[in-house]
Simulated assay, not measured.
Amino acid sequence: MGHRPEADIIELTLPARADYVSIARLTVSGVANRMGFGYEEIEDIKLAVAEACTNVVEHAYDCEVGLEQHFRVRCLLQSDRLVVEVIDQGKGFGFDEQRESLKPIRSDVDIDEVAEGGLGLYLIHSVMDDVRVHVKDGVVVSMTKYLRRDEVSSNDQSSSKTES
Results as ranks from 00 to 15, higher is better:
S126G: 10
T162I: 09
V56A: 04
L77S: 08
T27W: 00
T13F: 00
V152W: 01
V86H: 10
V73F: 07
D62Y: 10
E58I: 04
R72S: 14
L26R: 03
D62N: 12
F95K: 06
K161S: 10
I124L: 06
L82P: 09
S126V: 12
V135R: 08
L119S: 11
S107R: 08
L82S: 07
E116M: 02
F37H: 06
L119E: 13
E41P: 00
G120Q: 13
R17P: 09
Y39V: 03
A60N: 13
M128F: 06
I23H: 06
V135Q: 13
I42H: 00
S158A: 06
S126W: 07
A115I: 07
E43S: 01
S153E: 09
Q98G: 04
S22Q: 05
C75Q: 13
V65L: 15
A7G: 01
G118K: 13
K145D: 00
L26H: 03
F37A: 01
F95H: 12
A18C: 02
I111A: 01
R72Y: 12
R106L: 10
S101I: 08
T162H: 06
D88S: 13
V109D: 09
L102T: 12
K145G: 00
R148K: 08
E151D: 14
H59C: 09
G92K: 03
D130L: 08
I105D: 14
F71N: 15
